[in-house]
Design a protein around this nucleic acid. Structure first.
Lengths: 337, 337
DNA sequence: TTGTCAATTTGAAACGTTTAAGTTGTGCGA
DNA sequence: TCGCACAACTTAAACGTTTCAAATTGACAA
């Protein structure tokens, strides 16, 4: 049997209460006692039972991170930052993958409502098919980058309209007029925002907003590639494409390469998110960088505030930054001019 | 305050014990009672406190998965399979990222030794720098694909010697004689095995095993790229390369592309692992596929066996399979012959 | 000697479940 | 009528901590 605190206490010749304090609140016991208890604990290999502790103190000091999957290069950096911040603030974190499925979301949500974690950071765009009624209103939850709850849950995010705006303006400033958009999973709030932002930016610049220049790329490689093929098959293909994320942009550039179309000579690309795959792409991908690390930190800070009953800002918007790399260039006419 | 079982019981006019059984062991109470309790629970929004439950039943029905990181495309499929199997067997899973750091490994190991999870699946190659003394000998732990513990912990794996053997034989059968090897992180057991397997296979075939044909690629993109550059800078570069994983193989092929070297016309590549990035590479990467999904399933089955006190096989070896794709071709001389 | 005070330790309750053992009440056969 | 079996429910203990309030101890002053 695992030794318990009472075994340690017996071994050290003190009461359970003293043993507890010697280990977790050392200032409250005399030097000799502390040493005796510690020795006893070590000698019998005592390990605290965190379940019992949690029950007693009514906290778990653990946070749950919900994220759709780990396939997408967008998440690792974010999750790492969440984890680092949480650890630094004295919380353990556990990660759950929702796969954008209600079933998994609920399974993991249970952990929160059943008291196995103190709070939850949700990084999950949802699929839009189902409406998620959300956690019990008073449970500590923070969303990052996307909204899947009807309930008003605090969020840390970027201005996705602005993301699109930056990209479109950059391309337009290089002389592009036929700028296409490959959207993400339009079930996701952020994907819709980027798409709408693209349209708004095009309109503002007086550029043609043609419906068939907007393709649903579903957010994944395959969808992005398919969307790109459709764009290239058009009678008058675009000279530039703004992709809602880097993953699709990379896939789209691969399609061009396969068809012998030169990037950025023949066609320019801008992605969004700033994921590592864009840096390794050939040519390296111009992108609108989303500050994932900072978002993770902010989200955890906010969540911990919530847990501690402090008032937290309901909506934190972080700045994005255009990273100019090799995948876009001025149009030939712009160069000639 | 969160309603407890005793609130529910009061509301339903029964004892706490009956309320408990009505909810978790419905057969043991009368129909009317069951309904009354369920209604009461619903009406006050009762959610079970799993921490209390775990303390009482001395189980958490939760497994921990330890994995180095989520950057590498090798892990997602494996983790997903572990998760699916665990869920199907009635366990929740939580994921911890060790980053190959002893600090994180211990932090997560605590979850096991402190009773917050019932068992642990470790998918972690270690860095080889530190020796990990391992979990308390009697705690339920299963390793997958790699060994980081001194202690004898059951493992599910592949024969990495054989992985290398398959790759080298394939290349040799295509006429290659100068076959190089870019190794993984040689701190990892599996990486060393693949390297040694390469050497053994070369020797067995009577091919030259030159030290400078073996480069440490560290397992990551950058290391793989750097190793490839060194190989290409040699007076007499290899005509084929066996890379210890697909990630490095993709990076190495990218280096060739940048230098105008044609794959597979000028140089052939075989990777290992069978990760998705190899499929999307150009040309698509020949690889020795490692059955990650099955490994995950087997590992969980084994772990659950361990938890239930059953005897489990200490060493399960799964078969690997060569997937011939576009990245390797016969040598020119072989074609001419 | 007695009283006071601080330092240290202890007993016992509490956290919210589950469950073994015990109680109650009903129906049935002898 | 009694005894018994059985279903349905309840009482109370237990899981391993933490912590409040109370008790003990020793030192020191009056």
């Amino acid at each position: 049997m695992r030794p318990t605190l009472s075994d340690v206490a017996k071994l050290a010749g003190v009461s359970v209460a003293t043993a507890s304090r010697a280990l977790s609140n050392p200032d409250l016991v005399a030097d000799g006692t502390r040493r005796a208890v510690r020795d006893a604990a070590a000698s019998c290999g005592y390990k605290i039972n965190l379940v019992a502790r949690s029950l007693r103190i009514q906290r778990t000091d653990t946070l749950l991170v919900l994220t759709p999957c780990i396939d997408n290069a967008f998440y690792p950096g974010l999750v790492r930052s969440i984890e680092d911040t949480a650890l630094a603030m004295g919380y353990a974190i556990i990660v759950g993958f929702t796969r954008k499925s209600e079933k998994y979301r609920e399974a993991y949500g249970e952990l929160l409502s059943a008291g196995r974690v103190d709070g939850m950071v949700v990084v999950d765009g949802g699929s839009g098919v189902e409406r998620f009624t959300g956690p019990q209103p008073d449970l500590p939850v923070v969303q990052v980058f996307d909204r899947i709850y009807d309930a008003p849950v605090p969020v840390v995010r970027v201005d996705d309209h602005h993301v699109a705006d930056l990209a479109v303006h950059q391309l337009a400033s290089m002389g592009h007029r036929r700028i296409a958009h490959i959207s993400g999973d339009v079930g996701q709030h952020s994907a819709r925002e980027r798409r709408d932002g693209y349209r708004a930016a095009m309109a503002k610049l007086g550029l043609p907003v043609e419906d068939h220049l907007v393709r649903n790329g579903t957010g994944h490689r395959d969808g992005g590639a398919e969307a790109m093929r459709q764009l290239l098959d058009m009678a008058q293909p675009p000279t530039a494409v703004f992709c809602a994320n880097d993953t699709m942009a990379c896939a789209a550039m691969d399609v061009c390469r396969d068809r012998g179309i030169h990037v950025p000579g023949d066609i320019s690309f801008i992605g969004a998110d700033g994921t590592p795959d864009g840096q390794h792409a050939y040519p390296s991908l111009t992108t609108v960088d989303v500050p994932r690390a900072e978002a993770g930190t902010r989200a955890v800070e906010k969540l911990v505030g919530l847990i501690r009953g402090q008032a937290v800002a309901p909506d934190t918007v972080l700045p994005v930054e255009l990273k100019l790399r090799g995948s876009c260039a001025p149009t030939r006419t712009a160069v000639a001019a």
